[in-house]
Design a protein around this nucleic acid. Sequence first.
DNA 1: TAAAACTCTTGATCTATATCAAGTTTTTAC
DNA 2: GTAAAAACTTGATATAGATCAAGAGTTTTA
Lengths: 192, 192
Amino acid sequence: MYEIFQKYLEEKAEFSQAESERIQSFAIIKKLRKRQYLLQEGDVWKYDAFITQGCVRTYTVDEKGSEHVNSFSIENWWTGDRESLMMQQPSRFNIDAIEDTELVLFTHENFESLCREIAAFNNMVNIILQRSFISAQNRIQASLTLTAEEKYLNFINKYPGFASRIPQTMIASYLGMTPETLSRIRKQTAKK
Amino acid sequence: MYEIFQKYLEEKAEFSQAESERIQSFAIIKKLRKRQYLLQEGDVWKYDAFITQGCVRTYTVDEKGSEHVNSFSIENWWTGDRESLMMQQPSRFNIDAIEDTELVLFTHENFESLCREIAAFNNMVNIILQRSFISAQNRIQASLTLTAEEKYLNFINKYPGFASRIPQTMIASYLGMTPETLSRIRKQTAKK
DNA sequence: TAAAACTCTTGATCTATATCAAGTTTTTAC
DNA sequence: GTAAAAACTTGATATAGATCAAGAGTTTTA
């Protein structure tokens, strides 16, 4: 499934034949079965990971054992724990597959080499990071200003298609509400 | 007050004399009086802005007229609206000074030139962005998992010194609670 | 330096959402 | 294909935090 990543690269920037080959030479293909972990709390995350197929969730588990979903990532997105990666510290997060998933991994050293060697690659990564930051900001803003119902409507509007792939319990957790509340909101909004 | 920025640069990376001068040649010094706007909702943000002195807040105003504080930035931090800057679209945010404030501004074109010309500068910017992203993630995580009291304790622990410079109303808004709730929490935690 | 305008506190009451509990439907796994 | 497990729904009740209101400090401004 490397072709999907190849296509993504071509869309984002122009790479020479040699550069493309260099990038591919570092790629590690990884497959995850549904429920399988990509990262477990306590482990240090060491990759930059691109999803070519499937869907994963990033979440924490609190002292009471409840899970709090931090993010979902699907094909053509990146996943991982930047904090653990950058600080080389054990992760507070778990990442596991919601569906059977295929990824392209780069060890961080290799990834950094690519950034250093290939200006277009570095630039691409930078733009992705800026986009990620912007969407994190928007999520914060939404959590501060919206009611539970508005959060849900905002979510399905922003990520159409997610609702049909991801269990409601996880979506509720992502939105910071209980599954019961989400169920009631869906019932209400269906009426309208 | 350019020296403060100069010192910041020296701490973050190594720049040659020529590079330092190049950076400085683009710097615009700006002073804000307390309450003065740096950015108003509807305007397009065009700078990269570093605070050498003082404190600003970034916030939105909803239909009911309530303010929602998205972030505080103090000396040795950056501020601005990345989304407006990147997408060249009108900002949803206001940024104004909580104290008399001094900044170093770069127009985004100049800033991008510096990134292109000076690898160490580009690298520095990249690291800052990664850090910002990480702290946005942590804020999301906190908003999903913590109670009002925990959010406040987490805040004063993470940003000691902020509580004494910033009005409680604004801190409450930043934490996603009412000023009354924050006042009661402070009373309770003071007892312990 | 006094009045106006904020900011913070405290109390009483309200409400959005959580929690608990049970039943139904859907998915998983042998 | 069927039993077990998981996911979703619905109702009853609880609660953290919001809202409203009013008084006490503090800061701003003229």
